[in-house]
Amino acid sequence: MPDDETLPVRSSNDIVVVRQVVRMRAVEIGFNLVEQTKIVTAASELARNTIDHGGGGSARLQSLRNGGRAGLRLTFEDKGPGIPDIELALKDGYTTGGGLGLGLSGARRLSNEFEIQSRPGEGTRVTITRWK
C-alpha cells in the first residue's frame, strides 16, 4: 500500500471508501482497535463535511514514520465557500448543515493534532494526525 495517496470525496459512497482505506492504513500502522475506530470515525466526519459544506473535494492519507513513532495524517480539502468564523464552527453543536454540529469539534477530539485553514470563497483544508 502506498504511504501517500489521495482519494476523491464527492459522493456518499466515497465516504465509505475513505473509511475503509483509513481503516486499512490504521491496521497497517499497528493502531489498536480503539485507535483505529477513533481515526476512522474522525475521517468519516471530515469526509462528510467536505461534501456537505465544501461541495466535494479530496482526502489525502499519509502514513508517517518519524523516528520510532508511527502515525497517520489525513488532509481533507475542498474548494467550497470556506468558513467565515472558524472559532464558531469548532463549537460543539454549531451547525449550518442541519446535522448535529459535531463534525469538526468531534474530529478534533478524536485526533492528536488538528489544523484547519479556511478562507471565505477559497475553500477549507483540515488536517488531523493520530500517533500510535
Binding site: 477513533k38 466526519e45 459535531l102 468531534g106 477530539r109
Partner: peptide, 14 residues
Amino acid sequence: MRPAVAITLVELGL
C-alpha cells in the same frame, strides 16, 4: 454496540 464504538462515540460528543 462494540466497546471501541462506545468509547469513540462518547469522545465524539454523542
